[in-house]
Amino acid sequence: MILDYRAFDTFGESNVLFVATITVLVLLHFNKKQSKAVSETQEISKRQAKEAALDRSFEPKNDPILQCVAKFLVPLILIFGIYVVLNGHLSPGGGFSGGAIMGAGLILYLNAFGFEKTERFFTEKTYKWISFAALTTYCLCKTYSFYCGANHLESHIPLGIPGHILSSGLILILNICVGCVVTCTMYTFYVMFRKGDF
């Protein structure tokens, strides 16, 4: 329903997520390279800058119970999230719910294993390129679809057999794109609130 009848609304909505993340990045992203220039030009006192830095770098100690449980749960959560995303056109679920589940799995990983391990694979560049790729794919798919529809041209996308995974035209691809955007957004919100840097 949301990816075909109201596809334009869902595109607008992914952009709402994107623009909210950009605004949170504007507010809370603290770039270490420019920290010296920033604290001179703004009127934050030294005490406040020190407090903010302490807040950012505070990391929970390695908790053995949490790490044991996370080793078991995080792969399960991620696989379940991917299952929900891929089955969006056949059963309840879809991009948004699956993306939220995967985002929660990544946040659990960050909390259990500390900042260094996640910084190895999820940096600012990762976020920007994944969002860019997902939103552009959505944009191109839907441009083709709307252009064909409005000009009454024949659309050449195979529809498949209802009930199978590779069916219903573009909806599977759009679900994956939306799932990527939501996962990155959830993780970015958490990381920005937690430590101000990726």
Binding site: N15, I22, K128, W129, F132, T136
Partner: peptide, 25 residues
């Protein structure tokens, strides 16, 4: 339907696309 009539749709899509591309440039 003439090609000019597609232009409003193209302008909306173009502005959204340039919004996403500006984030990586």
């Amino acid at each position: 339907m003439s090609f000019v009539q597609n232009f409003p749709f193209f302008s909306i899509i173009l502005s959204m696309f340039s919004g996403t591309i500006c984030s990586v440039l």
